[in-house]
């Protein structure tokens, strides 16, 4: 099974923008091997930044792939820049708001805004029964470049089968009502 680092696509503007969310759960085993210090100096499990990079790459990569109906093999080719101001923790939701900046037959450049919703904010300012007091706040940015590898400059040949957008990623498209994109 492919390792998916987004849970749902929540918004899609064809050829332009895709928004996805990732809920961070204490049940994710890798969190228990990756600790940071909280404000009091105590150790707390956090989501590794590399997996946040992967989440932004999956969101932006699906957006780029959707432009040509997932017929191109879209590969993350370059992390032009990446910034994350927090250590994401269980109980938080990350949101990746990806946009295509430029695109041609060879590939695309994308910009993604990373925001966080901290569900524990509701406990501090709300009635404990809803997330009404919780607010999305921007915590990072990601500039990524993707290559359509069948259009590579050196003329290298790759397998005909699209190994990038394989069957299991369609589950996410289906749950977002976007299955029709992968025609």
């Amino acid at each position: 099974m492919r390792w998916m680092w987004i849970d749902a696509i929540t918004h899609h503007e064809p050829n332009a923008r895709m928004v996805a969310v990732k809920n961070i759960s204490m049940a994710e085993e890798h969190l228990h091997d990756h600790f940071a210090q909280d404000e009091s100096g105590a150790a707390c499990p956090v989501m590794p930044t590399s997996l946040v990079v992967e989440g932004t790459a999956q969101t932006a990569g699906i957006l780029v792939g959707s432009v040509h109906g997932f017929r191109e093999k879209v590969i993350l080719a370059k992390i032009s820049s990446f910034r994350l101001d927090i250590d994401p923790r269980p109980g938080q939701t990350l949101r990746y708001d990806a946009r295509i900046e430029r695109m041609d037959a060879s590939g695309a450049s994308t910009e993604t805004v990373i925001s966080v919703l901290d569900h524990s904010d509701a406990a501090a300012g709300g009635d404990g029964a809803s997330d009404a007091a919780a607010q999305w706040r921007e915590v990072g940015r990601s500039s990524l470049m993707f290559s359509h590898i069948d259009q590579n400059r050196s003329g290298l040949q790759f397998p005909k089968e699209n190994f990038v957008f394989s069957e299991n990623f369609r589950t996410i498209l289906r749950s977002a009502g976007l299955e029709g994109l992968a025609s």
Partner: peptide, 14 residues
């Protein structure tokens, strides 16, 4: 590297 040429292409265009 090869992907940098695409990056440079896009940045020059912009």
């Amino acid at each position: 590297e090869s992907i940098d040429f695409l990056d440079i292409n896009f940045k020059v265009e912009k």
